[in-house]
Each structure stands twice: as structure tokens, then as C-alpha cells.
Design a protein around this nucleic acid. Sequence first.
DNA 1: GGCCCTTACGAGATCGATTGCATGGCCAAG
DNA 2: CTTGGCCATGCAATCGATCTCGTAAGGGCC
Lengths: 342, 342
Amino acid sequence: MVMKPRRRTAPAKMSDIARLAGVSPSTVSRALAGSPLVTARKREEIHRLARERGYVVNSTARNLRLQRTQTLGVVIPLAHETSQPLSDPFFMEMLGWLADAITQRGYGMFLLKVLPPMEGWLTDLIASQRADGIIVIGQSTEHQTLEAAALHYKPLVVWGGHLAAQSYCTVGTDNLAGALAAVEHLIKLGRKRIVFVGDPAVPEIGLRYEGYRLAHERAPGLRAPPHLVSSHLTPDTSYEAVRAFISAGGNCDAIFAATDVIAMSALRALTASGISVPSQVSVVGFDDIALAAHSNPPLTTVRQDIERGAHTLVDLLFRRMAGEDAPSSTMPAELVVRESSC
Amino acid sequence: MVMKPRRRTAPAKMSDIARLAGVSPSTVSRALAGSPLVTARKREEIHRLARERGYVVNSTARNLRLQRTQTLGVVIPLAHETSQPLSDPFFMEMLGWLADAITQRGYGMFLLKVLPPMEGWLTDLIASQRADGIIVIGQSTEHQTLEAAALHYKPLVVWGGHLAAQSYCTVGTDNLAGALAAVEHLIKLGRKRIVFVGDPAVPEIGLRYEGYRLAHERAPGLRAPPHLVSSHLTPDTSYEAVRAFISAGGNCDAIFAATDVIAMSALRALTASGISVPSQVSVVGFDDIALAAHSNPPLTTVRQDIERGAHTLVDLLFRRMAGEDAPSSTMPAELVVRESSC
DNA sequence: GGCCCTTACGAGATCGATTGCATGGCCAAG
DNA sequence: CTTGGCCATGCAATCGATCTCGTAAGGGCC
């Protein structure tokens, strides 16, 4: 599409301010940068003029000259997701905290949501030099892509599960330990048939499933029922999966859901089937999104410290941008017991 | 902070590709742009080389030359919000749809979250020419700022309530009609004491409160109880407000909440106080966020078509960027009756 | 008064792409 | 064989800032 090349009133440029101040653009540049090379008197005069005229440095030109963008790329890959809206509040809360952390550092945030078909999304973003560093929220099923990119491109950090042999830098919760604690909590309550709901193909979820399996292995005489696969981003698929399970006569006394969104859908599916929570079936989620405390009944879940996670992501990324080879970081998970499991 | 000026392996530039292909940068530029001025044979050869070397045009340089950024600014002002996380799923779902709509047009998305102290956030963004157009999600309490900016800057659209005399372009739901329908629904159910929970200082919420008041005026013999003021972004303040209301002996048979987040907190507060929904108290929300259908009981609410809203915002913005003086747009609201009001 | 050193400032190159204009080669018509 | 026209291509200016380097002015000292 063709755009008009110019706005009605072209914004002032540095040379305009220079002319007004009776100096050269060099001096204006230095004055605005607070350089001591320019006399205090002139510096203040230039600042005053700039403020009056509403002059702000053109960031495109500055970035070209300085060979940096003062911007971080934040990518949300949704390969495993067929439906459009990215609605998992966990990602969204993460985005909010990232926005804070990035802004605090004086950087901007270039947001990219990637949907299938996903080809070259990462290499192209890197090559376009639109960002000084990249944060990928969630591995989705793009482990290979990340692996390949990390070989050549250092300022890259990923929120997600830490897999055995991986060369890219991740920040994430100890999914296995968290899941283990959650399921052991259910076992301690005397629950015998605990169903897992989630899609283990996504690395993070896979690790949670491992924790679930491990808890069963450690409990004598307990066997894990077949788990229900369900994409973790839409409430609907999870709801249907649980309802189908129940109406097919599947019986269980607890549900361990891979995310809080799934857990809340499970809660509703159980209620709709006339099953009461927690007296008949206990439900435990994962994430501790803001709404988890406000579901009905409030949800027992494994808390991930999103705020800390966001700050760690940004911190590691800055260290990598500075050339350091900052390593992955795993944060502890914390079981939060509420009324959906008693 | 000082950054290393260069990455370990400097990315290829256009002149590199030109040298490899044995042509001038001009020809490479034209070839990559698909210009018919360059022979098909050469064009393909250049494309092949670029692909092999992973060359992608440096967007900063291109943008400087073309005097545009191929990027839209998306701003979330949170003046009225003291706590940090931006957690209202409504805004987040909007962000997701905006990301889609903007990506579809081949544009990027520069995300900015603005917290107090909010000074010059809009004028600076405009002057920096970082974006070709700006979308502001929610007026917050920044009506004056928007009004002032719109005088000089045309490619600006705002999600929010349409106020009487306003010169900036808004897209929003018919808040008044939606609220009217919701409250009339409650009245038809025989509810007599309907409490409003929300903060009318935010324009959108103010209009919803107007609808609430209007429904009471039209119903003979009905008087609105005092409303509960509560910021609409945190679940906690709303929860506390409702609990305090009840334990202070306030009695009501229905709650009309300004947003779904508030409504879900109210649901939980009622349950915690031993009041059953909907048999004793009906609850109606506003927004129809994804989780509204999955609360317990599922929430009756006023649906805003977020997807359409996002597309309208982007559509109007592009028309404004093209120089057209596109007008505000108000979309119909739709009452969705679920089990929280029967 | 002359010399040197410091200091404030400007001229001009530079970042990497796009594009108007000039040019050289080739083909066809005369 | 010449000449005119067209087409593909390259040269160089341009976008708006930053920063190196050179220089003029000013001040101190002998």
C-alpha cells in the first residue's frame, strides 16, 4: 500500500534547532547528550529551545549512526496453537512485567507474535537488526529453531523448560520439582487416581508430566491413569476433554492440570458434571496466575514467580548483549494450597 | 551503560551481496524490491545469494531513507493504576488481536506501557518518529493529554469511551447501551437493590455507570443504592470492597460490575461470605473475557467484540495515516446471559 | 609582545539503504 | 553504416543523527 511520504507538519530536526540557537548541529547533539564540551550557558539555551519546539531526537537516524536500536524484541511463538487469540494470562502477565523491566532500562519493546506457518521468524528478526537482543516467551515446539539460532546469535534468551542438551539460554521454573510437589500433595491427601491434563510435547509441560510420573513411581502401589492431552492455551479444548473423560465413565479423584487455565476449565467441567470440588475431586493447577486465587473454589497451584522470571530474563539478556556468556537459570517452584484441594 | 559496539560476526550488508553478485548495491536493492528494471535472471541470482547468506535488509537504514518505520506504536497508559502488573485480560486479549491485525498489514508493533509519573509520554513518542501511527489502549485518566496531542497529530486512535466533545478518534463499545441492557435484565429478573462496582472516573466506566443510572430512572419506584468505587484492574481491591460492603450489613440482590475482573472477584467475595449466586444475589459483568464463560458459575456479562474492535482500530489508523480524517466508531454491545444471573 | 596550551566549536565523514539521473550498450529503422 | 531510442545498470545524493579531527579564539606565562 502507498502511504503519503510526509505528515502535514514535518517535525523539527536537529539542524532546525541548531539554526535557531545559532550553532552547528554538532553542538546541539553534544548539548542534548549533556556533553561537558559545550558551555553550560549554551547547553541550557539549547535544551530550552528543544523543549519549546517539542524537539525529540529522531530515533531512526540515531540508531543507524550508533549501530543499535535501543530496543529488545519480544517474540511469542504459537506453533502448537491453532486458534488465534493468545489468551493464556500467564504469558500476558509475563509480558506486563517484561514491559516494566525493559522500560526501566531505557529500552523499547518490539513485540512479535508468530503463528504458523512459521518460517524464518527468528533468523529474519535477527538479520533485520531491528532489536539489540531477543526474548522468546515459551519454546512452543520450536526447540530446533532456537537451537540453530543460538549457534550464531548470542543475545537471545528464552522462557521455558531447560532440556538436557541445549545450547540456548533459558529462564524457567523448576517444572519437574513443582509438579512433583503438587502430585505428592495430592497423594498425601489420599488421592489414588490422579489424572494429568496437558500436552507433553511442549518442553515445559513435558517436564511437568515427568514430575507427575516420578511422584507416582515413588508412591508404592500407585499407578498413573492415562493422561489427557490438551493444548494448554484454549480453555475450550480442556473443558471438552474433561467432560468427555467423565461422560465416558472415566473415574478419578484428582486432576493435575498443566496450567491454571486448564485447571479452571477442569473446575468448571467438573461442576457442570455434578462433581463437587474438592470433596469428590481435588484439582491442582500450575502457574498461579492472578485469577487462580479468584476462581471458585480458589485454585491450589504451583506458583511461578513471574516478576522475578521477567527480571531474570532481561538481566541475562543484558549480560549477553554485553558479551558475557550468561548461563541458564532455573527458579524454585512453590506449591500454593488453596481450597480446590483439601 | 556501555555496550560493545559490534557483535562478534557483523551481519552482511547490501554491498556485500552486491560484491558477491558482481553488481552495484542499487541493483541489489532493486532486485530485492522485485523491480522489473532488473533482468529476471539477475534478480533470481541475487535472491538466491541473499537467502544463502541469510541477508535481510537493515530496517533502520531503510526506515531512515524512506521516512517511515513500518511500525505502529501501541501504548497502554496506567495512570489510574497504582500497582504494577497490567493484568486485566481484556487489555491483553486486545493486545493479541492487535498483534494479529498489525502483523497482517506487514507492520511491526512497538509496545509501550506507561506508568506514573506520566509526563510527555505521548508527545515524546510522537516526536521521536518511532512509529508511523499510534494506538492508545484505554483512556485511563489521560483525556486531556490525548485531546492536546490530537490537535497536531492525526495518525492516532484510542480505544475507549466516546465523550461528548472530543477531538481524538476513538473506537469502543456502546458502553451506555450495554450497561442499560445489563441492568434492565437484572430488573426484569425482579432484582430491586442492584449495586454498581467500579470507578466512574475512567471515561468508559463512567458511561457504564450512566447506563446503570438510566435503567434505574426508567424503572418506576426503583432507586440506585450507593455504588462501590474500585479501580478496575486489580482483583484484590474489588474483592475487599465487596466483602466490606457485605460485612457492613449492606444488602443487595444483584451486583453490576464495571468489568469481568471485578465481577469475578465479586463472585468469590459473595461465595466466601456464604451468599449463593445466583439464587440470592445475581452478578453481571462487562467485557466477556475468555474466562468469563469459565468462572463458577459462568458469568452473565456484556460482550465487547474485541477482535472486531482491534481490527477497527487498525483500519481507522491506516486510513488516518493515509491522510483521511477517519471518524470515531462505536460498536454494539451484546448481553450474554449465563448462570450467574437467573 | 610572542608563544604555547587549553577549550569550545564546526566541517565533514559515516551508518546502510533507496532512487533520480546519467550513461553505455544493443537493436532496429532509415 | 549511421542514428535514435530503449533498457539495464551504476553513480551519487539523500535521510538525520553522531563523532573524529582540525582550528580559531582566548588565556596564562615569560
